Computed example of a mutant assay.
Amino acid sequence: MTGGTAFLWLLGLAGVEALDWRTALRGGLALMFVLTGVVHFLPSWHRDFVAMIPPTLPYPSLLVTVTGALELVGAAALLFPPTARFAAIGLALLLLAMFPANVSAARRGVSLAGKPATPLPARTAMQVVFVGAAVLAAV
């Protein structure tokens, strides 16, 4: 997210008129959500994401598929000015709704792509940044 946002913001500073800070932020978020949304559908990642879902929730595979689809739709909607504000709010809410899976993964020692889940303090800080960026993109 930060790399894509920074790149777009620098293009705006270089004179690309359509790229103000908010548009750059939305573009960076869209890039992040496209990447994270696509991996929901890759078989090995899908299995890892299913393992992250708290055991008390039903249909974990369906939940992973739905959240991946919502991330992709939200990413596209961020790039369309009439829907960008609603998409940013929706994605902030989606991040909050998915956070329990990150907590569950950290507490249960679930691995993602063969690596341990991000430790909870770092994941919480990242989540605050991502939700904050989505809220900021909505204003």
Rank of each mutant, 00 (worst) to 15 (best):
P121T: 08
I53R: 13
A105I: 04
A14N: 00
W21N: 09
L95H: 01
M32K: 07
P82T: 02
P116M: 13
A125D: 07
P116F: 13
S44L: 06
V73H: 03
L93F: 12
L25R: 01
P100Y: 05
P116T: 13
L29S: 12
L10P: 00
M52Y: 11
A75T: 04
W45F: 14
P100Q: 05
W9I: 00
L57V: 05
R26H: 14
A6P: 08
V50T: 15
S104I: 02
R26I: 05
T124F: 15
F33G: 02
P121I: 06
A18M: 09
P119W: 07
E71W: 01
V103E: 02
V135D: 07
T83R: 05
A113W: 10
L11T: 02
L31I: 14
L70N: 05
T67N: 10
V103C: 08
L42I: 14
A84V: 05
P55A: 13
P54K: 03
L120Y: 05
L25G: 03
L78R: 04
P55S: 12
W9C: 00
V16C: 06
G12D: 12
T23K: 11
A14W: 04
A24N: 07
L72F: 05
P43F: 06
G37M: 10
T83W: 12
A87S: 08
F99R: 03
G114F: 12
A117S: 15
F49I: 11
T36G: 03
P60L: 08
V39H: 09
P81D: 11
L8R: 00
P58H: 13
L42N: 08
R22S: 12
G3F: 12
S104F: 09
L112G: 01
L25I: 10
L79A: 04
T67F: 03
I89W: 03
A92W: 01
A133R: 00
A51N: 14
L79E: 07
T83L: 15
A106F: 08
E71H: 06
T118F: 01
L78D: 12
A76F: 12
A122M: 11
R123I: 00
